[in-house]
Amino acid sequence: MQCDYFDAGVCRSCTFMGVPYAVQLADKDTSVRSALAAHVDEAVWLAPFSGPESGFRNKAKLVVGGRRGATVLGILDGGGGVADLTGCGLYEPALADAVRALPGLVSRSGLTPYDVGQRSGELKNILVTASPDGELMLRFVLRSPGQLPRLREALDDLRTTLPAATVVTANLLPEHKAVLEGAEEVVLTEADSLTMRVDDVALHLRPQSFFQTNTAVATGLYRQATEWMSTLDPRVLLDLYCGVGGFALHALRAGAVRAVRGVEVSPAAVDSANRTATEMGATPGTAVFEAGDATQGLGPARDADASSEPAGTTPGSPEVLVVNPPRRGIGADLAWRIEHSPELRHVIYSSCNVTSLSRDLAAMPSLRVRSARLFDMFPQSAHHEVAVLLERV
């Protein structure tokens, strides 16, 4: 892949830019195997799973710059300004078209871009997600609610310019800090969720819910986890850090499990997962998703009161566990709980950080890696996703 922004030194986010993709993939596979060599036998590694090397991102996180009537969208340039990145080659086609149209749309709206150096202005960021069906979710991150009327007035122009815009929201971020979004979300459209159709499961994505950046590779990841579960024939699956329910609902749809329970900190994601389960026609009680601390999904930590009940109502004792934690991993307490839960015969661990994965595997010596695979969710960079199937010995 060739990128003018990279060649000009405007953006260096893609550290592998210019390296042939076959070489990138082989090097990344070698790197993650080396990092996990103490825990994963070379013989259990499957061939890496990959998708397109460009045009794969389903989301754009754009900083807003310029001035009123002359909007720039991209990344901070290091000098307090914003460098244009609207032609980034990583975006899916529908997303790329939307990003190119947004500067003009924002300029016509009269919204004032936020000036980081001066701490003035209103529109800070725009977050855009494209679904596999080409629909869009647009989230405008505002400094204050004072610009909500102006944004509402721009909706007709937005729908004309981007007819695929299904969900439009205003996110409020009054603080001056290095984050992309605030806690408060105001939905401006009738629809409040984007349908992310992955295979035959119509997952719902609401604002502030996590979804994998690369839909094609996420599809491969869900298929692999479901295939692993199909060989195990468990009755009940527990999915911690379940997000919008991708792993659990694909397994349930395929008949790889009979019942699922998911735990996720985001109430919006939990609502989405429960909505998908209902639309799938899941029998009441066979798909239960709850908002809570995933690290407590197996009950109290080792230093807590052992008589405490696990969070939520479980549709039966789980025999297989899926965990898909953030970069920090599952941590010592949850690893301890898994290690001391003999009813859990198998664990599927999907990780975006082999360092924390290696540490967590070391804390669960009763579980051995039966199969492992790299999923190249992030071409052109060193970022990775690795899934391992663990079996209790």
Rank of each mutant, 00 (worst) to 15 (best):
G51D: 03
M377Q: 15
V244G: 07
G285W: 03
V270E: 03
T71E: 05
E42P: 00
P93R: 07
V72D: 02
V386S: 03
P365F: 03
P93N: 08
W228P: 04
G182T: 12
A94H: 13
R33C: 09
R159N: 10
V186K: 14
V19F: 04
A191C: 04
V388N: 04
T355K: 10
A301Y: 10
A164F: 05
L249K: 09
G255W: 14
D115G: 12
L389T: 01
E391R: 13
T286I: 01
E135C: 01
C14T: 07
F56E: 00
A387N: 09
V187S: 06
D7N: 12
T169H: 08
G292R: 05
T71F: 10
R68W: 05
A372P: 12
T71P: 05
L252A: 12
A26Q: 14
L361Q: 06
T161Q: 13
A183F: 06
Q212F: 12
G146W: 11
E190K: 15
A277H: 13
T313G: 00
A363H: 06
E122I: 01
V320N: 00
R206H: 04
T195K: 03
S358T: 04
E279H: 13
P163M: 13
L203E: 08
R206N: 02
S266C: 12
V10C: 01
L148M: 14
V270G: 01
D233M: 05
G18P: 03
L127A: 09
S356N: 03
L194P: 04
G281V: 06
A154Y: 11
L374Q: 07
T71C: 15
R275S: 10
